[in-house]
Amino acid sequence: MTELVAAPGTTLTRTELEQRLPAHRRELTGYCYRMLGSSHDAEDAVQETMVRAWRSIDGFAGRSSLRSWLFRIATNVCLDALKGRRSRALPMDLNAEASPPVESSLGTPEPAETWVGPISDGAVLPASSDPAEVAVARESVRLAFVAALQHLPPRQRAVLVLRDVLRWRADEVAELLDSTVASANSALQRARATVAARQLDAPGPVDPPGEGQKALLERYVSAFERYDMDELVALLREDATQSMPPFRLWISGAQDIAAWMLGPGSGCRGSKLVQVQANGRPALAQYRPDPDGDHVPWGIHVLDLSGGKVVRITSFIDPTLFPRFGLADRL
């Protein structure tokens, strides 16, 4: 994004600030989402950033770009929000072993603040024509990466996102965090090591968007809506996994996923799926049938595709997510 730099000593009016803020909202939302692991928290943090900026505009004297000034405010908002809060996670982070595909594995739902949540691509990915820039942005919001970030101390988290995702220079990060370049570089190395260790179970190279991915998704939607588990299993890699926040269980293996769908998950029979994009990945919004004959929101399934197969399904069972993806409240 082009930096908007005022001349030293220049002040902005509140009207001018309000006109410029929308151009920064998407990038700030992506930053706050990576920091906080929740689309709801990210939206709240961006709104608080905008409010703080509006209130303190008299203190902006053009010594830095408007973008840098907003990121300083957003970083402080996120650091404040993270104080005393436990890290968000995915089910694989909480349970080392996969669950058998039986109803007793379901357990009770955990509070929403336990989990890393999904976010719509439209809220965070840059409106760029540069394929390389878009590819980097997609990888930096994938669920496994965002979950790994949550294991970092908050300031290390900020350093890693600013340096490796947003490509800030070390001196810029040091200035934003009121630190030294040496300290910022040390934090970056520690953060990189931690995140790399947390992602050792990566499902393999991700299939790029294209006709192959489109065809796979169409077959997946067709098999799911017909509830043809033989066809669905054929689309899954043998070691595919499925998790279902807000529940702790996760299932490993294509056959166990099908067993779950035909057993405890059989209430999904007759569902309709709508394709969306979440966390830089293809995703499906599931509407389950209700007694009135309509279909009502049930969950958002984020899919990882590799080698022409579905290798990971993260199913967020949360109808309140649907408005965040611009989806209807019933079909």
Results as ranks from 00 to 15, higher is better:
residue 115 W to T: 02
residue 208 P to E: 07
residue 53 A to Y: 12
residue 277 Q to T: 08
residue 232 L to G: 03
residue 60 F to D: 09
residue 98 A to Y: 02
residue 48 E to T: 13
residue 131 P to L: 06
residue 271 S to A: 15
residue 136 V to F: 05
residue 196 A to M: 02
residue 289 P to S: 09
residue 19 Q to S: 08
residue 308 G to P: 03
residue 111 P to S: 10
residue 129 S to Q: 06
residue 130 D to M: 01
residue 224 F to V: 10
residue 37 G to C: 14
residue 239 D to C: 03
residue 251 I to T: 07
residue 299 G to N: 04
residue 238 E to F: 00
residue 303 L to T: 00
residue 283 A to T: 08
residue 56 S to A: 12
residue 299 G to H: 05
residue 132 A to W: 09
residue 319 P to L: 11
residue 190 R to W: 10
residue 23 A to L: 13
residue 191 A to I: 09
residue 313 I to N: 13
residue 211 E to G: 01
residue 35 M to K: 09
residue 222 S to N: 14
residue 95 N to R: 14
residue 135 A to E: 11
residue 310 V to K: 11
residue 109 P to G: 13
residue 235 L to F: 00
residue 261 M to A: 15
residue 87 S to M: 06
residue 318 D to K: 10
residue 187 A to Q: 07
residue 184 A to G: 06
residue 104 S to G: 01
residue 139 E to D: 07
residue 46 V to W: 08
residue 88 R to F: 09
residue 113 E to A: 08
residue 180 T to I: 04
residue 15 T to P: 02
residue 123 A to Y: 06
residue 182 A to N: 04
residue 28 L to V: 02
residue 47 Q to H: 15
residue 178 D to P: 00
residue 149 L to V: 00
residue 247 F to K: 06
residue 223 A to F: 04
residue 182 A to K: 12
residue 297 P to S: 11
residue 305 L to R: 03
residue 327 L to E: 05
residue 230 D to F: 06
residue 244 M to R: 07
residue 45 A to V: 00
residue 306 S to H: 06
residue 112 A to Y: 15
residue 80 D to M: 01
residue 210 G to D: 07
residue 128 S to E: 11
residue 243 S to V: 13
residue 110 E to Y: 13
residue 191 A to C: 08
residue 125 L to T: 07
residue 277 Q to P: 02
residue 28 L to K: 00
residue 11 T to P: 02
residue 49 T to I: 09
